[in-house]
Amino acid sequence: MSVENAPVVDVDEAAIPVEKKMYYRFESNDKKEFRVSELAIQQSETLNRLVEAMGYTSEDVENKPAIAIENIDGKTLKLVFQWCEHHKGEAIPVDDGSVPKIVEIPEFDAKLMDIDNGLLFKLIWAADYLNIVQLLNVSCKKVANMAQGKTPAQLRRVYLLPSDEEDEAAKRAAQEAQDPRAREVEEEFEERKRQGGNSFF
């Protein structure tokens, strides 16, 4: 996709002084391109470190290829950058785990996260990978809110949680896939049983 028709995340241009107006270009794994302000990037520790290390000038941003984010798709990345632009300049919370976390989901975030679980989990995965602390907090809170007041059976349906039996079956399947010999032994055992032999040995 060319730069001109790349989806550009909404930015409040008036809020940024002219001399500091610096943008970076990022590309998702499905080749969608985004222009993101420097201040918004600061919400992501991973991207912030990356652009600091690259030391791009405004010309570099335009002339060099967009920075590829290889494991996040365009749909998810759009949500991530929309969030970063909206919350740019906000302090990044520090959590030392000693006190209960108090996280409120602002209206903007609630609307942004009015998405299906599949996309929400992708968003969480991206927030974790890009180390965007507050986005991770609000998205995790949203997932936790879904659990409120639900019975174990309902939780299984919402979160697609396997039951213990399904868990065991999946484990067995994984083991067998790793060790083809185990399956052969099993089949041989079954075959001998069918032939009337009581003992395998």
Binding site: F121, L136, A144
Partner: peptide, 16 residues
């Protein structure tokens, strides 16, 4: 799915 999430994320969710 939920079970695909990294362990840190699961901890974050459980906290709430």
């Amino acid at each position: 799915e939920l079970s695909d999430m990294p362990i840190d994320v699961m901890k974050n969710i459980a906290e709430y």
